[in-house]
Simulated assay, not measured.
Amino acid sequence: MLLLIPGPVQTRPETRAAAAQDIAPWDMDFRPVYAGIRETVRQIAGGIEGEHATLPLQGCGHFVMEAAIRTFVPAGGKVLIPHNGAYADRAVRLAGEAGRRVVALPGPDTRPVTAEEVAAALAADPAISHVAMIHNETGSGIVNDPELIGPAVRAAGRRLILDSVSAFGALPISLAAHPEIDALVFTSGKCLEGLPGMGFAVARIESVTAAAGNAGSWSFDLSDIYQHALRAGWGSIRFTPAVQALAAFRVALDLHDAEGGQPARLARYRENARVLHEGVRGLGLTPYLPWEAQGPVIVTVHQPADPNFALQPFVDALKRRGVLISNFWNTQAPTFRIGCIGAVTPEDMRTAVAAIDAALRELGVRRREAAL
């Protein structure tokens, strides 16, 4: 089966094989593996030794994003969230239910937020301490660029939490060049092509130390994870982790490096996206984003106007042809989405395009223009 969703992603056999073992997470032989993962992740993030630390947390991206908001934004404090996609919607809810006051910066889910919009919102409300921004919106496929937004946040004297869950490992970022970032968060099962189960924050040590007591949660307190590492060592785990996922992640990190690291991973994903974007256009379908706004992680496509089209039967028809995609959409207009990340190639994208064409023919879908 060709798995084309934006996570969990298709993985290499070597990665999956590493999880097929029983491991005691506190065994002395596993400590250097865990400590090595933390160091490798810091290096990929462009963090500075002694200034940044990798703080793992069991669970999905929502868990580590909530932990970052709870840790760095004081209870009752204000956080600005550029609101241009489904995962920003979720960040709004996470922050609100954690007792933080959200200032939403609304925008369409078809373009990135601009530095001018962020600067204006921060100037209008001096009480905002942080911006929490989604790096890559996996609903539509747009990219909110920290290279543009970060300087605006820094110039305003505020702090940034960057949700890079579906971007880290492919889209470039260097924490050394972004002193305004308190934490960059991501998970094991996306662009680094590991198995799901672990979240990570690469955080500025100065900020995480100052944030002690903010979280209001023991489980979701990144400062407590940092203090545990100081007490017990960087190879020690605070609570029982998805340890087999960590073992697989170590292999995935090695494969990432062997491929050529972030630049090579991005180049493959961009080519995947290009082949897919051009391919669906060639079938008469309408991508949700024009190519100039298209990110490398996922290509989202307007559902056809033909009354014979329905998403679940379409997904089922693709699955019969060996291609598995998401059976839901979370854009402002009805769409379907196809992941370009994971251990997949441009040739796999060509296979997917042919399967899409065959599935539409099976369903009797002749009108393929967007159902606007």
Rank of each mutant, 00 (worst) to 15 (best):
K319E: 10
V323Y: 06
G322K: 06
L318D: 11
I341P: 03
N308K: 15
A317E: 14
A310M: 13
Q332P: 00
A305E: 08
A358K: 13
L360H: 12
G364T: 11
D316N: 11
A310C: 06
S326W: 03
L318Q: 10
P313L: 04
A317R: 04
R320C: 09
R361E: 11
T331F: 00
P307S: 04
A310W: 07
R321S: 03
L311C: 04
R320L: 04
T331Q: 00
P307K: 01
A333G: 01
R320K: 12
M349Q: 15
A343M: 07
W329L: 00
M349N: 10
G322T: 00
W329E: 03
A358S: 14
K319R: 14
G342A: 13
T351S: 14
Q332S: 14
N330W: 01
P346R: 10
P307V: 08
G364A: 08
A333N: 05
A343Y: 04
L363H: 05
A310I: 00
Q303T: 15
I356D: 10
E362S: 10
C340A: 11
Q332K: 09
F328C: 00
D348M: 10
G342R: 12
V323M: 07
S326N: 14
V353F: 09
F314R: 06
G339T: 02
L324K: 14
L363I: 01
A358Q: 14
Q312E: 13
D348A: 03
V344S: 06
R361S: 12
I341V: 12
G322V: 02
R320H: 05
V315G: 08
E347D: 15
I338T: 14
T351L: 15
G364R: 05
L311D: 08
V353P: 09
F336H: 07
G339M: 04
A317I: 02
A310Y: 05
